[in-house]
Design a protein around this nucleic acid. Structure first.
Lengths: 191, 191
DNA sequence: GTCTATACCAAGATAGAC
DNA sequence: GTCTATCTTGGTATAGAC
């Protein structure tokens, strides 16, 4: 048996270059219209060469979304709790429509239990839900959040609100989704 | 000039048969995995014959969603206002996972302004938003809804909540999405 | 019964995943 | 390169208005 040696430094760098390029191409052409062919051309690789790094098109897009989560976390390190983090992310989404389209489409498609990225979203939703519920409990203890609201319910609803606003923002929304999200949070503080 | 004669009785019947069959096949196999070939076979047509009626696969799926909206409206005629209608639809969605997958995926994909069904969703969202805002105003006037909530904001947020719950329901949700939706409505009544 | 738009099919062009 | 998917082209057969 060959023992796994892990990626070489060159491979790591190429991976990052591919992720950056994928982000850029997706932002311009959208998710559905971005082919592996086009992506390969953008980084100077053959299609086979590109897929060597990520296995399938889907795993590549999953990697792009993981990279975005990571980037958001480090962009908003100073935000006090995960409810605030979600609000900041919703606001930031307004400036990256290509990523919003990727996230919306991909999270809907991966709803199929046989989709390669299904488990990624199961884990991601569970983690966010748990951390939002913690934040809701902390805010309730501090007296800055509706005491009658069930934390788990609030957590699930806030995620749904964020996801749903990302979809609606692709159509003609009369207001800024981020302002809307903040307004709903205000309602929950006062009820 | 060729004057349009409209569809023959046979064509009208076949159209309905196709929509019914599409609903069933999509409910079983999901949206992404349903091919025009499979759909054509299910109604005893060639692919070209199938596409003769709807032009493209996308227009066929749009027709399926229009038929669903129509079916929901007649299923819930006795529901007093459109907020109640949305709540009833969310509850009903729990029994038709294939349609939920179709709706989630398709509404995300059609976010692309060049998608053939983009305008359908623009109109649909605008209509639902307007009717939900009317319902919120009526409930506020009747004293059964938070007076501090802006009706337009509530309308957009309720749609987002419904859409987002449809996505999350495809993963491991700890609670029933319909109960969750009702709980959020309760919070809005008391605030 | 004539006429032509509608209903439908066979084959293939095109394009993307892998 | 191979396989699979959508959609077009170019046709024939039939419904149904007149």
């Amino acid at each position: 048996m060959a023992t796994s040696r892990g990626p070489y430094a060159k491979g790591v760098a190429k991976r990052e270059e591919i992720l950056r390029a994928a982000l850029e191409v997706i932002a311009r052409h959208g998710y559905r219209k971005t082919s592996t062919r086009e992506l390969a051309a953008a980084v100077g690789l053959s299609e086979a060469g590109l897929l060597h790094y990520f296995g399938t098109k889907e795993q590549l897009f999953e990697a792009v979304l993981r990279a975005r989560d990571e980037a958001d976390r480090s962009r908003f390190v100073d935000v006090p709790d995960s409810i605030g983090l979600l609000a900041a992310a919703v606001r930031h989404n307004g400036s990256v429509p290509g990523l919003v389209e990727l996230y919306s489409t991909f999270s809907a498609e991966a709803g199929d239990p046989e989709h390669k990225s299904h488990d990624y979203f199961v884990d991601r939703y569970a983690a966010i839900r748990s951390s939002l519920a913690d934040a809701a409990r902390a805010r309730q203890a501090a007296g800055t959040f509706s005491p009658s609201a069930d934390p788990e319910t609030v957590a699930t609803a806030l995620i749904a609100l964020s996801d749903g606003l990302q979809i609606q923002s692709q159509y003609d929304l009369p207001a800024d989704p981020a302002d809307l999200f903040d307004n709903v949070l205000d309602l929950l503080r006062d009820s």
